[in-house]
Structures are given as C-alpha cells and as structure tokens.
C-alpha cells in the first residue's frame, strides 16, 4: 500500500501513470518494458524529472489515437528504438567512468 503512496503521492507522477493507464493494452505493455529498460541503462535525463518518459508517452499516445498497432509505430526492435532515443545522452555509467578516469589522471600527476 505505502509504496503506491510514495510514488503516486507525487502529483506529476500520478498524472503520468494515469496517462499510461489510458493507453490501449498493447501500448501499455511496450511502454512499461521501455521504462524498465531505461531505468536500468540510466540516461541522466531520468534524474531530471519525467521529461523523457513524458515525451515517449506523447509519441505513443499519438500512435494509439491513430488506431495503429504499437509495434507499427515503434518498430519490432523496441530496444533499438530505446537506444536511439538516448543515443546522445550520457548515462550514469558514463559519468561514473569519467569521474574515475579523472581521479586516475589526477593521482598520476601527484
């Protein structure tokens, strides 16, 4: 019960989830899997609010409203679609590795 509260207590997130739920079933499935993948890969935009997820949702809503099958709009390789979406984004991993490299080069100088 309380887990729902903490997430859905955030007004913005609640509105977001409501939009997801309004999608047709097949769109919901694809959206949720995409979201899970993005959380794992960790593009930095995710930490900056729901902008990226909200954008993706708008894109899917448009396809759903036009009555298309979800894979018709994302393509069958949904992972490739996700990768293309965050291609220019740094991930948490990139930032972490940069900080490690900086530390290494700093240590070398000292």
């Amino acid at each position: 019960m309380s887990i729902k509260k903490i997430i859905e207590g955030k007004k913005e997130w609640r509105a977001h989830v409501a939009r997801v739920k309004a999608l047709p079933q097949d769109y919901q499935i694809v959206y949720k899997e995409m979201q899970k993948y993005l959380f794992k890969v960790g593009p930095v935009e995710l930490g900056e609010g729901i902008g990226l997820l909200s954008e993706i949702l708008s894109f899917l809503e448009e396809g759903a409203a036009a009555g298309k099958d979800v894979l018709e709009v994302t393509g069958t390789d949904v992972a490739a679609f996700c990768d293309a979406l965050i291609e220019d984004s740094k991930t948490y991993l990139d930032l972490y590795q940069e900080s490690v490299n900086q530390k290494v080069s700093k240590d070398k100088k000292e």
């Binding site: 948490y92 930032l95 972490y96």
Partner: peptide
C-alpha cells in the same frame, strides 16, 4: 572503490526502478 558520491545516481535509479515496478 569509490567515495560513494558518484555511486548515488546508481542507487537512486535502482530504487526508482524498484518503486515503479513494485507499484506495478
């Protein structure tokens, strides 16, 4: 082998992943 600071984003995104999927 990090100080912890640069670990925070990983911890936070993992937590968010868990929260969102648990709610689901």
């Amino acid at each position: 082998d990090f100080t912890g600071r640069n670990l925070m984003p990983f911890i936070e995104s993992s937590l968010e992943l868990l929260e969102v999927t648990a709610a689901d």
